[in-house]
Each structure stands twice: as C-alpha cells, then as structure tokens.
Amino acid sequence: MKEKKSIGTFYIPMIFFLVTVLFPFAWTFLTSLKKKNEMFAQEFRFLPAAPTLDSYRELFEKTDFFSNMWNSLVVSFATVLIAGIVSFMAGYALSRYRFRMRNALMYFFLLLYLVPSTLLLIPLYTIFNKMGILHTQLCLIVAYSTYSIPYSVWLTTGFINQVPFELEEAAALDGCSLAQRMFRIVLPLLRPALVASCSFIFITSWNEYTYANMFTNKASRTVTVALSNFMSQYNIRWDLITAGGIVVVIPVVIMFVFVQKDLIAGLTAGGVKG
C-alpha cells in the first residue's frame, strides 16, 4: 500500500500527538532525576541541574516494587485468560443469535456497571472473606474478571458483528460444527479485534486501584497500590512516585511493541464479501 503523506494531514498531527502524549511523561521523567530541593526551587529550570538515579536505586533496593509488579502481571494475565475466553463466547452468542431477552441481556451487562464500585467494596470484602480468598491474588482475578467481562462482551460483540456471517454459513453447509466455526473461522478473522480487547482487559486490570487497595495485603499488593502508598499521611515521596511511574509503564510498552503487529495482521484478501 503506497500512500502519499502530506505535511498537513500526516506529519503535523503526528508530531502534535507525539508531543502531547510524551510531554507529561517526559516531564515526570525529568522530575524523577531531580533532587528534592530542586523540584520546588523558586527559580524554574527544565533540566535537572545534577541528575541523579538515586530514586531508581531506592525503588529497587528498598521497596517491594518488583514483587508488586509481578503481582500485577500475574493478576492481569489470569484475568485476560478468563475474561477473554468467557467474553468471546458470550460475544459470539450475542452477535450471531437472535433470541428473546437478547436486548435485555445487552442492557443488563451495561447497567450493572453503572453502580459505582465504591458501593460494592464492603459487600465484596465480606464475600471474599467468606470464600476465604481475601488478600490473595485470586480475589483480584475474580473481581477484575467480573469487572471487565461486561465491557469486553460489548467490544467483542461489536467486532464479531463486523465479520460477515456468510463465511460461516458456507462453512456450516460444509458440515462444520459450531466450535469449528467459532475457532477456525471467526477467531482467525478476529485476531486484531481480540488482541485489542485482550489489551483492554489487561490494561484495565493493570491500572485498577480501588479494589486492589482494599483486597490485598503486603504479599499480594499490586503496583498501582504500591505507587499510591508512596504518599503516606504526612509524606509524599515524589522521587519514588515519579521513578515508579516510569518503571511501571516500561513492561507494558515493550509488550505492546510485540503485540501491535497482530493488530494489523488483519484479514486475508480472499473470501470476504463487501
């Protein structure tokens, strides 16, 4: 695909986006290199006068940041597995079948989530406590799955709607079973879409704070909680927060460098009718 890229519609907006996206982060990074008294100095300076990596050293040597990141990774991956599969199945049903109560179900998935999580905290705490999984990673995985399933059901339904049904009809005539159609025909066509909705689930879990804050202890604490705990009652550790903020983003971005190709792999040219 050879396309002409003009300055006005390509390069200028592109640079605009890169600058807006990166500026807050670059600023955070510069701040993380500064010494405390320089951060609040009267005289304003963009670049740190004496850059120091002390905050990163302290982050890795004196805090549990790595194990917090590991917890977040485990929880997020497990959630992707559970919520991804479950919502692909549900999305397929909602897209391909018409039945009574379908609309009601679609609304049900959405409306449940209009009740803010603040109000769910205490009952959920009690439920998890009774189930005996409070303060473990499992309770976060359960909580995040319920939290992301409705959203990803909607996403996958939307995506499957865009895959022409005729393909499946042809396969059904050839004697393909439901499972075969789902996994042999729809799934490959949906690769980019599934990658997108799995990234959605992953990142939602990775970023979640309210539940993680309540349902974890020192051993199972996730990275968002660890980060906000650098703010204690009378002390905000700007150095650790900014350094941690940079570190937290790196693995996800690296992961995405590999995944993003699949977003584009897309449909093969043949066999798709317009």
């Binding site: 996206v21 990166l22 807050p24 982060f25 990142i203 990775w206 970023n207 704070y209 990275v223 968002t224 980060l227 906000s228 903020g245 937290v248 983003v249 996800v252 971005v253």
Partner: peptide, 8 residues
Amino acid sequence: IPWVTPCV
C-alpha cells in the same frame, strides 16, 4: 503510554 499509566 497514557493508557497504561495508573490514574493516581
């Protein structure tokens, strides 16, 4: 990046 940054 903005999306993977925790809200806090």
